[in-house]
């Protein structure tokens, strides 16, 4: 990998790691509350749809998901190497493709709303 590319993926990994550290515990709590039947009021269809319709809502959701996906992709690439699979080029292509796909899907769904 060229140095320029490395700086980009490392930057996304670091930014995503910081963001997930701050945001994911609360996100998991929302999933937990929902699974326990205590569905948060603004996760009802109308309220959540309104939030995702606003530009601020779209931007927040996109930034969080984009950085999380690329953070996870880069880290999973290293995990695969750590578990003894040494086809780094293939693995890199796979994880970054999935992250790109997730990014595109996020943008697509947010623009549809």
């Amino acid at each position: 990998m060229t140095i320029a590319k490395k700086a980009v993926v490392w930057g996304l990994f670091a930014a995503g790691g910081t963001l997930t550290s701050f945001v994911y515990p609360a996100l998991i709590v929302l999933f937990l509350l929902t699974s326990m039947g205590m569905v948060p009021a603004n996760l009802q269809f109308d309220q959540f749809y309104a939030f995702a319709s606003s530009w601020v809502g779209k931007l927040c959701l996109f930034v969080v998901l984009f950085l999380s996906l690329w953070h996870a992709a880069h880290r999973l690439r290293v995990v695969v190497h750590d578990f003894g699979i040494r086809q780094d080029k293939l693995v890199a292509r796979a994880v970054y493709t999935v992250a790109s796909l997730g990014t595109v899907l996020t943008a697509f769904y947010l623009l549809t709303i």
Partner: peptide, 16 residues
């Protein structure tokens, strides 16, 4: 992180 990201994307798909 990957799991919850895609879970949230699924939720967005249903919302959309």
């Amino acid at each position: 992180v990957a799991f919850y990201s895609f879970y949230t994307i699924c939720a967005l798909a249903i919302l959309a």
